[in-house]
Amino acid sequence: MLEGKFEEASLLKKIVEAMKDCVSSCNFNCTENGISVQAVDNSRVLLISLLIEKDTFEEYRCDRNITLGIGLGSFSKIIGNGANSDYLTIQAEDDADTLGIIFEDKVKDKISEYNLKLLDIDADLLEVDAMETDATITLPSADFAKICKDMKTLSESLQITVTKDSAKFQSAGEIGSGSVVIKPKTDIDHPEESITISLDKPIDLSFGSKYLSDIIKATSLSQKVTIKLTEDSPGVFEYKLPSGYLRFYLAPKFDE
């Protein structure tokens, strides 16, 4: 049996919102250590890797490994029925064909229960090995979201170049071009505003703006995003959870 209680429904809401436009359905793999998901979008350009560790939950038990096939649109509708501050418990028996979703209002004496029909999903799994990284950038997630939105107005591609002490984001299209350069900065009073750049090799990569638009839907999950880049390899965009992460692997574009 699986039972996982979130202190606040808002966390699961944010996770599902960040995933549902990339993949319509995916398997949630539940073990005694927590819940993980690997899902690839239809075009196999973007991969989502989610880990919700046991410590994320207020209470967690999973006696036997369970795979829950979940339609994210339906899941989103049901968890949207709870208030952000409610306790949210997900519950499934071994071999269950539904997932129980229970909201508890912390003030009123009110409990709401829903059941989501589970799906049998035969999904592609990709082998994501430990990747080498040539450059790592950590910046406020809201800043990265704004850069992606602003550059998308110019072009279908965002070019990221990283040198020793700066990262440059630029786009060029029919109406014109634009760029944003960020540099490392330590903000002791507001550590969430700090920017770090570490570099083994200079980077010059381009990514599809439409996929980046999907990735930045995770912005509310974390104040920071870490971007790991390697020349001619997928970029990794990581949003940390209180205990775990939501990662996106995005295949770059290449010049013909």
Partner: peptide, 14 residues
């Protein structure tokens, strides 16, 4: 022009 790579050449199906 630019072409979009898929993830398959990098990761491969399990």
């Amino acid at each position: 022009g630019e072409q979009q790579w898929s993830l398959l050449p990098f990761f491969g199906l399990l």
